[in-house]
């Protein structure tokens, strides 16, 4: 592997530390998934997933998040090539798509709330809001982190450390995408049949 002064480091001791954080977060989601899997049929005579989920809507959400994940990848590519402006543009696209995703999720929650399908109605709904809501909170945290990164990149030239931070953020963002794929499959696809 060639030693480059400017290329982004994909793996090192520091990225390993960040990976450890991601993997503990993965276990948080594993417990929430286990809870949901156990309680998914405990609807207390209320609505089931098939009654309240709209697959085309959730598919759109998934595509938006996937596109956001791709955009942050392109930001890493731009950082790897030392191109600050394109990197900022791709980061802006990432944030925009992430915000659209979060907005869609909040809209879905609002509709459920207004129809009375809230977390106190059944164990199924509690575990649903717990799992999907935790993912949404992570996305919100990621958006705040992204805003901070962009603010820094707007003011300063691209240092190697700054590029490394972009890579950490990209790992976090891709990780959330992976978690969402599992939610999409287990909660929504398997929930409507």
């Amino acid at each position: 592997m060639s030693q480059s002064a400017t290329a982004v480091v994909a793996h090192s001791k520091e990225t390993f530390g960040f990976w450890l954080y991601l993997m503990t977060d993965c276990l948080v989601f594993a417990t929430l998934f286990a809870t949901f899997a156990v309680l998914r049929s405990a609807t207390a005579g209320g609505v089931t997933g098939a009654d309240i989920f709209s697959l085309p809507f959730v598919l759109t959400e998934t595509m938006v998040l996937l596109a956001s994940s791709f955009a942050v990848g392109m930001a890493v590519v731009a950082a790897n090539a030392n191109k600050r402006r394109p990197m900022l543009r791709w980061l802006a696209a990432t944030g925009l798509l992430g915000a659209v995703f979060l907005g869609m999720e909040l809209w879905e929650f609002t509709v459920l709330y207004q129809e009375g399908h809230i977390w106190t109605k059944s164990a199924f709904l509690s575990s649903y809001f717990g799992l999907v809501g935790t993912h949404g909170l992570h996305i919100l945290t990621g958006l705040i982190w992204l805003a901070a990164l962009m603010g820094h990149a707007l003011k300063h030239d691209l240092s190697n450390r700054a590029k490394q931070r972009i890579l950490y953020f990209s790992l976090f963002w891709h990780f959330l995408d992976v978690i969402w794929i599992c939610i999409f499959t287990v909660v929504y696809l398997m929930g409507v049949v």
């Binding site: 480059s4 994909a10 793996h11 598919l59 590519v77």
Partner: peptide, 27 residues
């Protein structure tokens, strides 16, 4: 023990693009 992203940026981009296309297809 450090691994860098490939210097040829085209390769990095193709990785992300292939990942994206495969993900969309599987979804």
């Amino acid at each position: 023990k450090i691994t860098y992203l490939p210097e040829r940026n085209h390769n990095v981009m193709m990785r992300y693009l292939s990942g994206f296309i495969l993900s969309v297809a599987l979804t």
